[in-house]
Design a protein around this nucleic acid. Structure first.
Lengths: 141, 141
DNA sequence: ACTCATCATTTGTACATACAACTTCACAAT
DNA sequence: ATTGTGAAGTTGTATGTACAAATGATGAGT
């Protein structure tokens, strides 16, 4: 059955969750080439763009809780893609050589994901929708 | 930081997930009076409306995987709110007395959730957005 | 009647995320 | 110098969900 045909197709809870799960699935597929989940990949991309970023900053930009950020970094550290340097009460996250080497592939994955989701919906509509979703999310914080 | 200000505010993955998590939070709050998570509550409401419903039907309407439906039912059974009757290769789910007694409160929670999320956004805009989200979800299946 | 494919459901396991409690450090007030 | 306060980060634990494999029942083909 399609989401639009469900009994709860007018419910925000239903719509938001269903969409998120399906987008997650598409994203997972898109980032398979680097063997990372989308969240790990986005975090790594941020660190590559701004080496030495702090967890709290990552938490802000990715809108994930600090504890989740810790867990994501832990896994990337296990994979030797980033490393943490503790400096006073701050933690700085740097990409490793291996992480840096992944940049190109990561960008390609991001582009593929974007293309895959774009081809399903008009560009303008998509952009408006994403903006609306972000606005609504802000109102819910 | 707001979602609209994030580095990834144009990314569908980001928008869909952030929104879903915040909606989940609001919904959790709304259904606290019945001490059920939103998913459990919606499942129970479906069963109350159509006693004897099968898991596969619940799976269709709630757009959750069969295994997730099993887990949800298990918990509702523990709480003595529904009971399963196995009939051949099918399973029928019925509400118990205790479940039936909860109907009114459940409906009030649903209404509260709806009101809480509605007051943040124009009715028309909201409806259009939810419809768009469902459509996009369908295209992603 | 026997076997096989199929469907509905369940079980084991894993992932993404969050909350609450804790640690550690820095800085301000005394 | 001592104490208190608060921020940054981590850890233990819990929730929601899914996938893959297993179970069990039905029905078709032989």
């Amino acid at each position: 059955m399609k989401a639009t045909e469900s009994k709860y197709n007018q419910c925000l809870y239903f719509a938001a969750n269903t969409l998120a799960r399906k987008v997650e699935k598409l994203a997972l597929e898109s980032w398979k080439p680097v063997d990372l989940s989308p969240s790990h990949a986005y975090l790594l991309m941020m660190v590559l763009e701004e080496p030495g970023l702090q967890p709290c900053c990552l938490s802000d930009h990715l809108q994930l809780s600090p504890s989740t950020i810790t867990r994501l970094i832990e896994k990337l550290e296990e994979k030797k893609l980033v490393s943490r340097i503790i400096e006073g009460k701050m933690t700085l996250v740097y990409p490793t050589e291996k992480g840096i080497a992944l940049l190109q592939t990561l960008q390609k994955c991001a582009k593929d994901f974007h293309n895959n989701s774009c081809c399903l919906i008009e560009k303008e509509e998509r952009e408006a929708m994403v903006l609306n979703m972000c606005c609504l999310a802000d109102k819910l914080s």
